[in-house]
Nucleic acid binder design. Sequence first.
RNA 1: GCACCUGUAGCUCAGGGGAUAGAGCAGUUCCCUUCUAAGGAAAAGGUCGCAGGUUCGAUUCCUGCCAGGUGCGCCA
Length: 640
Amino acid sequence: MEIAEFVKENIKKAVNDIYNMHVDDILVEHPDKEMWGDFSTNISLKISKLVNQSPMEIANKLCYKLRGYELTEVFEEVYYVQPGFINFRLSKEWLQNVPLLVNTGLNDYGKGEIGEGKRIALEHSNVNPNKATHIGHLRNACVGQFVERVYEFLGYNVEVQYYSNDLGVQVATSMMGVEKIKDIHSKDYEKYDHYAWDIYSRMETLLNNNADLALEREDLLKKLEDPNHPISKKQKKLAFKILVENLKTFQDLGFDYDVVVNESDIVNLKLWEKTFEMLKNNDNIYLAKDGVSKGCWLVKLSANKNSIDKTGDNYHEEDKIIVRSNGVPNYTGKDIAYHMWKFGLLGIDFNYVKLDTGTQTKQLWITSYLPQNVNENITFTGVDIVFDVIDVKQTYAIEAVKTSLAYLGFKDQSTNMKHINYGFVYLSRETAGELGIDISDNKDKYGMSGRKGWGIKIDDFIKMVDKKLLDNYGATDSLRIVRNGAIKFEMLKYNTFQDLVFDLKGSLDIKGYSGPYVQYTFARTNSLLEKSQGYLEKMFNMNKKLLINSNLNEKELSLLRWIYRFPEIVKKSASEFAPNALCEFLFELCHRFNSFYNDEPILNAPSDKEKFLRLNMTKSVNVILRNGLFLLGIEAPSRM
RNA sequence: GCACCUGUAGCUCAGGGGAUAGAGCAGUUCCCUUCUAAGGAAAAGGUCGCAGGUUCGAUUCCUGCCAGGUGCGCCA
């Protein structure tokens, strides 16, 4: 049992013993200050009115009772203070045992089994295959990889899906651009997707100024719905070429996927048709007979909303369109079909082909509508849980998908579908200016836009970070590892749900609260352990009782008080989809270790007792940092 | 119009019904003949947007304002 739960159970028992009363919502937390112990509860303040006694009086009685229970092995002190908090201080022996347990469990510290092998389909990255990836996509991928790893760590079976929209307007635009814009050439670009980046924004500009071209694109989009049309094959080829380039960028940063799902295959394999048959027969999905959405199919969402403005230009349809009046489903429509497939509700599966980009570490598959000769029994349908890492702006569209599943009677699936929304990535005013974006309107942040060609390509950002590291520290073996650590930590250290204002200068200023700081601390622990020449292993068979140190100093205690919290932080960051909580924990751990390292000799500790304890703590920090960084998608360099 | 998000130190952000509101950066000081200075230590920096309400207690919850952002497209 986790220690906080253990405390709660005991408080429950004490309250019951004294007041003959059941309390369920007991708050047990780590107090802000160490002088208030390791755990504290406000229970006396909470029940004061109920039992008609002063909080201090209650706290006094509870403490007396608690001290009579078998808490003493864990806590050396249970006491209360004004205005009635009860504080628990962990015993030094218990604290010292944690590193021993960490090091006995080898590299599994923090792992859990709560997932029970349940399958999760995790969708992230999802770049439209018509241009280069930019730092907005980067945030998506970083959050996605964190979720992948932390849920795997807790015993789930996570399958990472990369949804490739190879049918949309964007790809059609890029294809028109490739045909029509002849003064720039792919061979002049380092990567094909960089060429496509320029083509796309140039073509958008052309389309905005020419109505005929816009009509041409409409026509093209219709043709693309037919997989057998020659133009369709051509587009698929272009989208694939760009997809592979995008994947190379992601894989340079260590992102891996299990399967790429092509939007075109959702249409070609009639996943949509089958879904639409079910939707059509549902009362909550209807065909608009008149109004602005005449001829479209819509999902009712109005039940949740209060009112709408139906006047003039401000008219907004509150229900969500899923099929256009020309009969073609839009993104949301296809997304419903996609999710029906994820949960295995259609009885149809894709065919799969191996996709070798040359840089993935695990086997990658891509869907196909054509039958394949694959020996392996591979499938990605029929999962228990669905996580979608999609930006906050799409909350409404995803609600429509969730609601549709519920309308069709798939209530559990609807509940088990979680939108992991993350805030949009903006460019700071300064950075936008450097990219040549017009900043005369004096805003403090600027949205990126593929259509306008505004944004920082991930590949370019990687190069800038590399250069910065090279300038500062010279060429080292760990350059790529440190660069990836810097980039990913930067993307994950902020609250995921909030917008992020990306400033190039700031993000290249790598010090303090950063990935390399954590990596550096890891390298430090590694160096110490190497120099200890197996001291821990030699001492490990000794009677631990003889090695218990009763005079722990402040720095040792401070570090020990952080080491035991790792498992609870892992669970918290997973359940709240909060990588930043883990980032902060690791940073604080490093800070405590570095402070300890600065003040106390480890290898030259004055006694065996101290050396054993200090090296054990060093080893624990080493394990936690490696595991913690891994969850963030970051490698721990043995040397820096 | 309706809905959602945000407002905390000069800047970027944590936190969150309680006990003295925390970091990093920038700026001011110290510490490498000593286990990796990509480090450590010290001082300084705040009416937690404003006004009410609920509460023993509000920066945190509720309401109303003010300011910024986003969504409600036959785009994805």
